[in-house]
Write a protein that binds this DNA or RNA. Structure first.
Lengths: 135, 135
DNA sequence: CAGGATCCTATTGGATACTG
DNA sequence: CAGTATCCAATAGGATCCTG
C-alpha cells in the first residue's frame, strides 16, 4: 500500500484508463485493514488504550518501525486516536475510536472464523501439498 | 506470504524463541485471506463458478501471474475448487467450496463495512493530511 | 519514551515470452 | 485456454543509530 500521496498509477498510458482503484472501497479500505500488522494492533487495542511501548510488547515480533507506520495509517483513517501526554520523557496513548471499534465487529467475526477453521485449513494444505509431491 | 514450504523463521537464534507464528490463526489464516487480491477473487466467485479467463476479466487490473498464484493459494487452503475439463484447448473452472462460502459471511460483512464507511475514512484522511502540512 | 532517518535485504508483483 | 518461466522494478520491512 502506498504511503501518503495516494496517486492513481495508470500504467498503460493512452489506453483510456480502465478502472479507478481510488474509487473502490474494497481496495482502498481493506488494503489498510488487512495488512500483516493492523488486525493484530486493532485486536490488541480492543481491550483498552495502550501506550506505544505496551503495544510493542503485546504485538509479537513487530518492529518499532512498522508499529509506528501502522499506527500512523490507522490514525489517518480515523480508526484510532493518538494522545500525547507532555510528561518527560513523553508518553503516548493509543485508543480505538468509535469507528475503530465499529470495524472490530466484522473483523472480529473474521478472526473467529479463522480460529474455528484453522484445523480444517491446515488439513487441506497437507492434502494439497501431498498431491503435489509429483515435483 | 511465503509459498509452499511454511517454515518458522526464528531470526534471533539462541534467544529462546518467543512466539510461534505458525500456531497463530490470525497470522496464518488472515494473511492468506487479506491479501491485495483474494477478497476480490472470492467476492467475484460468490456469484457462481467462473473460468480462468472470465475471472481475469472480472477482477480489475490483476495480472495472470498473480491470479494464478492467488487461485493456487485459495485452492490449497480449501476455499475454492479447481476443475479441469479435458477440452482442447483446456478449460478450468473455479468455484467456492463450502468452506469458501462460509468465509464470505464475515468477509462480506467487512466489505459492507468498508462500503459504508468509505466517505468517513476519506474525510479523516483529508483532515489528517491537512494537519500534517507542516512539512 | 516515542519516535524519525537511513541503509539494506527480501518479498511482491508487473511485463513478456513460451508451452501443452 | 490456462497456465509456467524468466527478468526486472517497486514495495515491505528489519537493523541500527540518532533525538526532543
Amino acid at each position: 500500500m502506498p504511503r501518503l500521496p495516494e496517486v492513481n498509477p495508470v500504467k498503460r498510458m493512452g489506453m483510456a484508463s480502465d478502472f479507478d482503484t481510488a474509487m473502490c472501497p474494497v481496495r482502498n479500505v481493506l488494503d489498510h485493514i488487512s495488512t500483516k500488522w493492523t488486525p493484530l494492533i486493532l485486536l490488541t487495542l480492543q481491550a483498552g488504550p495502550l501506550r506505544f511501548s505496551q503495544l510493542h510488547k503485546q504485538v509479537p515480533d513487530i518492529s518499532k518501525r512498522m508499529l509506528t507506520q501502522s499506527l500512523r495509517d490507522l490514525e489517518r483513517d480515523g480508526l484510532l486516536s493518538r494522545k500525547v501526554f507532555p510528561t518527560k520523557p513523553p508518553s503516548v496513548e493509543y485508543e480505538l475510536t468509535a469507528l475503530g471499534a465499529s470495524v472490530m465487529l466484522p473483523l472480529g467475526a473474521l478472526v473467529d472464523w479463522a480460529d474455528k477453521n484453522f484445523e480444517k485449513i491446515k488439513l487441506s494444505r497437507q492434502a494439497f501439498d501431498q498431491d503435489n509431491e509429483a515435483a
